[in-house]
Write a protein that binds this DNA or RNA. Structure first.
Lengths: 213, 213
DNA sequence: CACCAATTTTGCAATGCCTCCAAAATTTCA
DNA sequence: TGAAATTTTGGAGGCATTGCAAAATTGGTG
């Protein structure tokens, strides 16, 4: 089923606005660039920008749909005999070892993080994102373990796993902003992951182990 | 040395604005009430409000000076033979057992939390507060342990202890908003603290034990 | 008391995010 | 081609926040 001209143009317009906005933000910072600037550069009206993006932050932090499910997906996909925490640590190690851009291990990520760093609204947005990640993780843990409704454990475990993930991401961001190169940071974060695993309690590391069959 | 008339009036004006603002926010919510409303109710100009409070959020979240040091203070004051985490858990248990208003265990705290709950800027402010608490804790841990500059452990331990604290505070807030009464919540959170302690790793629970002498 | 200096309060203008609403332009389809 | 649906646009306005300079208040001095 072919996609209509209308849909295509909408998608293109949206993408163009997002790209131009991102470019401007990377160049001049988030606070400096106004929505009017973006609109003018994209050759649309200010209202059209608001047609596609509810807030200014959405212009910069667009592709976050897959990251909100990341931890939940990793947990649901854990191996037989593997716990939720172990699965997340394993996936984290794989990404870090592969110097994956998904975690920010890429050339130019420092510029991106710097923009976020000195724009409070963007940092605030990342916090709510982290919250969503953790909520989804908690929901996944509840489903996977069939925990009772009043059981606080899934929330607590989600908090611990979320902390580990958040710590890794934050460290990568900090080091990249500091000007380090991705491979260096990768090596360092692998060591950090070992430290993190050593800190986690047995209960955490053995929660929601996937049974046989 | 007596305090001049000028200083006294300043302090009084500031307090009056803060009180009136808090009252209005509790009554009508944070988003609904404008700064102009506050100014009019306090019988000052809008600019005078900004003279005392940098942002609207500061009108509601004023007295936060002591809370940013809380965890660091608790750690610095830990007993001989007691670890940092143990000290924080002990202090938390004492506050919860005493149904202390400092953690939100008081009649009327639900209204306060409800205002925060549905005002994104206020929640955002609380996140930065939590960050400050944790940074101060990390600094305290570094001082107390004399950890090397590059050692990631103080930061990680601060993260774990901060998580425990944050979890307790968040739970209290959630339950109070749900309409539960303080004593009930106190009992529940004591159980939660046991769960939390069971989840923490040995390394965390034994970090920065205060030596003899 | 009268006056000067420091401090505080206030008014005014402006910027920027964001919302609402209705008119104009564009695209789809019969 | 023409009506219907959709998108774009313009304009007005609310609100937080900032900057600036005038006006009011206060403290101390002669």
């Amino acid at each position: 089923m072919a996609e209509g001209l209308r849909e295509r143009k909408k998608r293109e317009t949206r993408q163009r606005i997002s790209d131009i906005a991102t470019g401007l933000f990377l160049e001049h910072g988030f606070v400096t660039v106004t929505i009017a600037d973006v609109a003018e550069a994209a050759d649309v009206s200010v209202n059209t920008v608001y047609n596609y993006f509810p807030t200014k932050e959405d212009l910069f932090l667009d592709r976050t749909a897959d990251v909100v499910d990341r931890l939940a997906r990793w947990v649901r996909g854990r191996d037989v005999g593997e716990s939720a925490a172990a699965a997340v640590l394993r996936e984290l190690r794989e990404e870090v070892l592969a110097v994956s851009p998904r975690l920010g291990l890429m050339e130019g990520y420092d510029r991106f993080m710097r923009v976020v760093h000195d724009a409070p609204p963007l940092r605030s947005r990342l916090w709510t994102l982290q919250q969503e990640i953790q909520d989804n993780l908690e929901a996944a843990l509840r489903e996977e373990t069939g925990a009772a409704a009043g059981d606080p454990l899934p929330g607590l475990i989600a908090g611990q796993i979320g902390w580990a993930h958040q710590t890794v991401v934050a460290t990568i961001g900090r080091e990249m902003v500091a000007g380090r190169n991705p491979r260096e940071v990768s090596r360092e974060v692998l060591a950090l992951l070992d430290d993190i695993e050593e800190l986690l309690g047995e209960k955490v590391l053995n929660y929601a182990v996937r049974g046989d069959r």
